[in-house]
Amino acid sequence: MLKYFFPLVVLTTFSAFSQANDCQFDDVTFHDDFSTARLSTCERLAKHEYHIGILPENEPVNPSPWFGFKVQSEQNAQIKIKLTFNGNTPRYLPKLSADGTQWQNIPFDSKGKEMWISLNTGKEPIWVSAQEVIDNQEYDNWLASLKNQQPTLEIETLGLSEKGRPIKALVKQSAKNKEWLVIIGRQHPPEVTGAMALFAFSEALLLDDALSTPFFERFNVLMVPDLNPDGVETGNWRHNANGIDLNRDWKNFAQAETRLVRDKMASIVRNGGKIVFAVDFHSTFHDVFYTMPDDHDLAPIPLMTGWLSDLDAETGWVFKTVNKSASSPDRGIFKQYIADHYKVHGVTYEVGDNTNRQLIPYVAKQAAKALVENLLDVEPEAFYVDQK
């Protein structure tokens, strides 16, 4: 359980002000020199008391304030930091790391829309972040590790993001298989728990012989785990480099990232394949699966309820499976595009921001197992829609 820090009274006289990137006051320095960092403004409020301001990439924006910075001091000191988020309420509980890799929750307090933390600093920098850091390099390392363990996997670059970063896909296919499962992730940069679930779900699907052997005798997989590398790199709250929410662009396709996945799926269909199911990993305030309503007559109708019922039966002792069906016409959401264009099920797999980190991979692996079993129970003819 977290302990909470209650700060001293804040002084109202500002003795210094600085614009990030690096902020240095007395012997204390704040840095944003790492991938995913976000540090907008710095103020010195009093000796060893500071104000860090966090601004969004543009507005309007979904208020999911991401923050990330390093701090160090010439002498060992305890400092107090006030975090503000451009008038928005904080969403994420602060994390601390000594190396940028291993993370732990840290005590905090809140006052209105302010968050306060207390840190012990020294010559070695410490990292503070809204969530654990999963940056673009970690995706590259993970994909390479998967291929090393399963050489039949293909790593394909679909194209480049708006800022020229590669959009990488993992493809597992057999020429005789026509049915495709599509997995995407990280449309929204701060949604790290969704990334954790995608990793565990995909590893179970690709590396567990008990699942992969029967599954890949019939199905192919297209996975794009890091769809918004520009936003991830710069610690955006929600958007890509052009200030656009990618999960609202699956109608206009104004952004390179969504067009690349759309065109890859279209190429699959042109070459005789069929998209039969799609899952998009996200994070929100609690665990929930957003599905399409039954009246959409998606192929096959019982697949979604069967999958989530089986998942609940296996994990119900520790995890509540929540299924919320909703249609979002004209909003440009990925699952809606899958339903409208391919006439099959798309689901948004949402993981709670503060869901137990041990629980996330367990549930995701069980979700992969239940999905495989339910997909294998569906006769190929049941995916009856002509997608050409």
Score class of each variant (00 low, 15 high):
Ala200Leu: 06
Val385Ala: 11
Glu373Gln: 08
Glu381Thr: 10
Gly100Phe: 11
Tyr92Met: 12
Lys147Leu: 15
Lys95Cys: 14
Asp294His: 03
Ala169Ile: 04
Met1Arg: 09
Pro300Arg: 04
Ala326Met: 11
Phe281Gln: 01
Glu381Cys: 06
Gly159Val: 11
Glu43Ala: 09
Phe281Met: 01
Lys178Glu: 13
Asn21Cys: 12
Val9Asn: 15
Ser174Thr: 10
Asn247Cys: 11
Glu156Asn: 13
Glu162Asp: 14
Pro63Phe: 10
Ala370Gly: 04
Asp295Tyr: 14
Lys320Gly: 11
Gly194Phe: 00
Phe25Gln: 00
His31Cys: 09
Gly112Phe: 06
Leu119Ala: 06
Asn21Val: 11
Pro151Arg: 14
His345Arg: 00
Pro56Gln: 11
Thr234His: 15
Ala339Thr: 03
Thr12His: 13
Leu143Met: 13
Ile301His: 03
Glu156Ser: 10
Ala144Gln: 15
Leu119Asn: 02
Val171Glu: 06
Met292His: 01
Leu308Ile: 09
Trp250Tyr: 12
Gly53Val: 06
Met223Ala: 07
Lys70Met: 12
Asn86Lys: 03
Glu381Trp: 11
Lys111Glu: 13
Leu8Val: 13
Gly235Ile: 01
Val269Thr: 05
Lys80Leu: 15
Glu381Gln: 12
Asn323Val: 09
Asn62Thr: 13
Thr29His: 07
Pro214Lys: 01
Ala326Val: 06
Ala266Phe: 10
Ser327Cys: 07
Lys251Asn: 08
Ile52Gln: 01
Asp22Asn: 15
Tyr342Ser: 03
Lys320Arg: 13
Val351Asp: 00
Arg91Thr: 09
Arg259His: 12
Val182Gly: 04
Lys113Thr: 05
Ala364Arg: 00
Val372Leu: 02
Thr41Gln: 15
Ala241Lys: 00
Gln24Trp: 15
